[in-house]
Amino acid sequence: MPRNAATREFEHTGDVGIEVVAATREELFAEAIAALGRIMYDADRVEDRERRKLTVFAATDADLMHDALARALNVFLIDAFVWRDANVIAASGGIEAELIGELFDRSRHQLHEELKAVTYHRLAVERTPAGWRAVVIFDA
């Protein structure tokens, strides 16, 4: 189902910042996880062959965003799994995310930017009149 969400990269001197807006909280998390993948590699070339599930709990939505993105980052960095998209559903005290993709294949997948960590600097998740908004800066 098409997602009612968008991501904008903003200028940060040494690193990479994104602002994500979405109609719903679940879409916000799904779009942020999908955006993380798009920054790191050409997600359009990733095929839907396998699913990876992440269950993340945290005390606040900002912590949840940090931890969900950090977990997804390690799915790429440690397990070499790349995703073309993500689905997210709310769980009690957290979220369940499903990454849709396949194992990284250097012959088919093109890498873009190396992101190394999800920072807490200016990290924000908030409700807005139009829906939801998040700001995340990645260490690149």
Binding site: H12, T13, G14, D15, T119, Y120, H121, R122, I137, D139
Partner: peptide, 9 residues
């Protein structure tokens, strides 16, 4: 010096 996260670079 330039903009970092937390500490400046």
């Amino acid at each position: 010096i330039h903009w970092g996260y937390g500490f400046p670079i």
